[in-house]
Design a protein around this nucleic acid. Sequence first.
DNA 1: TTGAAAGCGTTACCAT
DNA 2: ATGGTAACGCTTTCAA
Lengths: 347, 347
Amino acid sequence: MTPLSDPRPSRTTIREVAQHAGVGIKTVSRVVNNEPNVAPATAARVRASIEELRWEPDALAANLRRTTTRTRTIGLLLGSVSNPFAAAIHRAIEDVAAHRDVAVFASSLDDDPAREVAAVEAFVRRKVDGLILTCVAASQAYLRELVPPDMPIVFIDREPAEFAADTVHSDNVEGARMATRHLLGFGHRRLALLIDRREIWTARERERGFLLALDEFGIAPETATILDGLSDHVAAERAVLSVLGAPNAPTAIVSGQNLITVGAVHALRKLGRHRDVALIGFDDLELADLMDPGVSVVAQRPQEIGDVAAARLFASLDAGRRLDPAPIIVPVDLIPRGSGEIRPPSA
Amino acid sequence: MTPLSDPRPSRTTIREVAQHAGVGIKTVSRVVNNEPNVAPATAARVRASIEELRWEPDALAANLRRTTTRTRTIGLLLGSVSNPFAAAIHRAIEDVAAHRDVAVFASSLDDDPAREVAAVEAFVRRKVDGLILTCVAASQAYLRELVPPDMPIVFIDREPAEFAADTVHSDNVEGARMATRHLLGFGHRRLALLIDRREIWTARERERGFLLALDEFGIAPETATILDGLSDHVAAERAVLSVLGAPNAPTAIVSGQNLITVGAVHALRKLGRHRDVALIGFDDLELADLMDPGVSVVAQRPQEIGDVAAARLFASLDAGRRLDPAPIIVPVDLIPRGSGEIRPPSA
DNA sequence: TTGAAAGCGTTACCAT
DNA sequence: ATGGTAACGCTTTCAA
């Protein structure tokens, strides 16, 4: 029977390096950590030994005794890693992190409060240096006992409740308001708003913007149709099909999200009404410009959100403590492409 | 001056638990690790103490001495976390991993060999349990000295060179062949193939499938136009614009990739020829079915790729060693939507 | 400027 | 079935 290969390949240790360089263990430690009080000549000798023995410090062991433990790792919780908006944020954060030799754990929330807590627990257990979170639970108070008090946290896309922390998100209210105003400006008076579940903060914010715009134009909210609870394109398609079949159907639609827009476009196509019912989506879609008519959207800036969130997190990390919570609002851009510039039949 | 908060919040240790339960340290260790030889009564007492003191074992410290170290962490290297194809794979892998309480480090390759090596180094330094990699370097031989010999590795999307390991990817040759055959079947005789840089394995494979189909139909490869080095939609658009302007321009286009398809559609629209030049893309696009004409594609199955890759990785992990390398080929699906069913002018 | 010894929180080994 | 002690690879403390 052949002997099994050693399950624990003997790594070189700091001890061997010290011996090889003819110095004490602590001096090697000083060198690799750039601590002062090492004679240049000694340092050089140590570095040569490290090189020669191809030693790499064991980060895990180092953190065991260190007071200010740094795993050079952060936890990122996204709506879903496969959602294009989230994936773009992810990419931006990764780029900043990679630059600092920090690795990123990525998880998907799936708008499930239980997953939110589980993900944070998993991150904390792995001793990440900081957290960038998308939240959906009714309250984030649980973080106070789950997360070490010094660990920086930045929320993205949605504001937390009962927990003060940095937050980076789009200007949802203004975006929805712009979209709605835009449609009203083209003469529409009967509008529909399609939004996700109201548990989701952005859905509520976008509804707020929608209502503000109606108010500006002196339109009674009752004349508008607001459909909520739409979390995928199938539900959205069904909703649009039914709402357009009703009497006094809306002449324009504001979609509160990515997947809802896709569902709405499907429905309009199916009804053959994509040229006479106006539509503006929230969040951009790839190929939206190549559709006929092009799909007008309020585009978010996911890369900017990621950039800013990462910058905040690393600022706290560099400071060694949570900085004063700052809410950062990233602008959105209304992109007219055709579908949002359709006039109502009567106008 | 207010005292700084203790930077190292004193965690409860196994020692305190042992004392509280009135047992030895090792017995507590036995209980949490489900080792045999603990009396049920003792175990219950220990568990109660753990509960009461809210102790959580320090995974880092545990791994320090453990022979079979498990960080419950894997490293995933993708083309780019923001590419929809890669993001879908990511999601599938995450779902499998989350189920086993394993966290996923995700990084982007950006088709840069240097990033490939750097990412693997970063993963290994953090002592991941396994690797799922997309590769682009000319050889993966470097893995032999960079990665511990027992660490499982699964390649996705592209085959490695000079390194034997599990590989999970689409049937690229057959996919390209199907697409090409499909166009030839509609009567096209002058085809163009647009592919990414030839350093990329999938580009070469898809070219192979393209040429095989031409051969089947007895068409000389010289009559086809093959443009390579197309890595984004801008380059692809430019390429299509120029190739369609040339004499004896192709009547049908096979696009070798996501972004190339987008560029090609843009170009065809710009020329107003989207209804008379046929196009089949490799890899599906969201909204492709809503375009006019719908964009026919050879769709990959990213979720299946992710599922299978994760299954292989965890199989190796469970076995405690790298299993015999198996190449797994995932089928592709030709989805006709209109653009691929356009006939040539003369036919 | 340097290093010996103690300690980090756990698992491995070997008694009992 | 149980526990004492060494050990993991490093940082910290403190004396030299």
